[in-house]
Design a binder for these strands. Sequence first.
DNA 1: GAAATGTCGTGATTATTTTCACATATAATT
DNA 2: AATTATATGTGAAAATAATCACGACATTTC
Lengths: 211, 211
Amino acid sequence: MRQNKIPQATAKRLPLYYRYLNNLNRQGKKRVSSKELSEAIKVDSATIRRDFSYFGALGKKGYGYNVEYLLGFFRSTLDQHETTEVALIGVGNLGTAFLNYNFTKNNNIQIKMAFDSDEEKIGQIVGGVPVYGIDEMMERIEGISVAILTVPVSEADVITEKLVKAGIEGILNFTPVRITVPEDVRVHHIDLAVELQALVYFLKHYPLQSK
Amino acid sequence: MRQNKIPQATAKRLPLYYRYLNNLNRQGKKRVSSKELSEAIKVDSATIRRDFSYFGALGKKGYGYNVEYLLGFFRSTLDQHETTEVALIGVGNLGTAFLNYNFTKNNNIQIKMAFDSDEEKIGQIVGGVPVYGIDEMMERIEGISVAILTVPVSEADVITEKLVKAGIEGILNFTPVRITVPEDVRVHHIDLAVELQALVYFLKHYPLQSK
DNA sequence: GAAATGTCGTGATTATTTTCACATATAATT
DNA sequence: AATTATATGTGAAAATAATCACGACATTTC
Ligand SMILES: NC(=O)c1ccc[n+]([C@@H]2O[C@H](COP(=O)([O-])OP(=O)(O)OC[C@H]3O[C@@H](n4cnc5c(N)ncnc54)[C@H](O)[C@@H]3O)[C@@H](O)[C@H]2O)c1
Ligand SMILES: NC(=O)c1ccc[n+]([C@@H]2O[C@H](COP(=O)([O-])OP(=O)(O)OC[C@H]3O[C@@H](n4cnc5c(N)ncnc54)[C@H](O)[C@@H]3O)[C@@H](O)[C@H]2O)c1
């Protein structure tokens, strides 16, 4: 609950910085400039410097940033010392893909359990994660504060209510439903169909090159 | 290539409006107000009115918007009369999930073909979409302007170069690699690990309720 | 060790987006 | 027909974000 004055736009870029610094560190790189970072992650170098500056003077003039130092800094800022446990609801096409992905590789985020209503899926282990019946959710989910929602549209609202009742604090919602939650619950929507359609729209209406 | 003065933030919301209007229309609803829309899709009502106003006066004071009229308007604005054909590269966990999803349900967007390097996958039909060998991409992809990229990190750059050579105009990139393209190619990144980590960060650092 | 080079951190500016708030027009009600 | 309720469209203000551009200082070179 620290400094609440960091712009949201900056906050959203932090994981990106963190991951790239991790790469550099693994490669044994010792220093990096905002210009280099900029080219790799396609964010303007002034924006990067500004972003970093919200946390104080992390670099050295004429030198750049010390990778290890910066990485350590972000590690603590992003609370990478503690693992965040996440539950996934709806082990279908998308849900299965996520369970098979190792989010812990770059972050200390771990999908700890999954829930589904399909008898076929209950009891399975998918990507190392146990799948429980949705009826058991209320008991089992205790202590977990983040949920990934990948159920069908028709179930989105009901399951959301349950999640809220179970005390969940954040939901990463992949359904196209704009779910309703109390104002102390945070929802981030990832609306894949909208993203695809928006890309198509931009292609047709916002010509690049010589804009 | 019409009016280029619509704010990007607005453009990104258009598909959202379109989909919801479609729902309303299917339900037989005849009129809708910006307030109702706002509650359903969680966008401030003033923002909605402003967004619509970029296209002219689409509503009626004291009444709201005529669903059918508005829908028709967005249909042409979003070019829903013509189908956009898309190719998907990398039929793995994520790729398979997308192939099994019917994007055409709400948009006129269709995944027409997929490519993979895995002999096991080549020749299969996944979600009604044929999977071809990556070697055939250059020939087969002709005429397609949008690609969904779901290959492993290690392949992202090479495949991107190929896509660019093949004349692709837009890429929806799901790999964490910030791919490099000529400036007339548009890339939208969907970085799922970053999204998840950002949500966790916001939960810890941006308390809701009484902000 | 002096000069040249490189890069940060940031004040100031500009751009973009959201929100307020109300005049105005239509619809519904009595 | 008059009155009341409703909801748009938008000028103006506020909030947020990106970018410019440069002084200051560390590093590197000669
Ligand atoms: N697959 C995609 O590419 C894609 C794209 C855009 C949006 N989406 C959205 O993401 C969501 C999931 O998509 P999907 O393709 O994985 O769907 P899916 O049908 O493959 O999976 C849904 C899963 O949820 C389970 N489920 C159903 N009711 C449940 C309940 N009450 N409690 C718990 N689990 C329940 C089902 O058994 C199934 O396993 C949908 O809302 C869809 O609209 C998916
Ligand atoms: N699955 C997730 O939840 C998830 C989450 C975040 C990011 N991502 C990213 O999305 C991408 C895809 O993830 P995934 O889990 O589906 O991986 P995956 O390994 O399951 O699938 C990758 C597919 O690409 C194919 N492929 C490999 N080399 C190829 C080539 N040269 N040409 C064509 N096809 C090739 C493979 O055969 C495989 O089918 C990765 O970059 C991953 O980092 C995935």
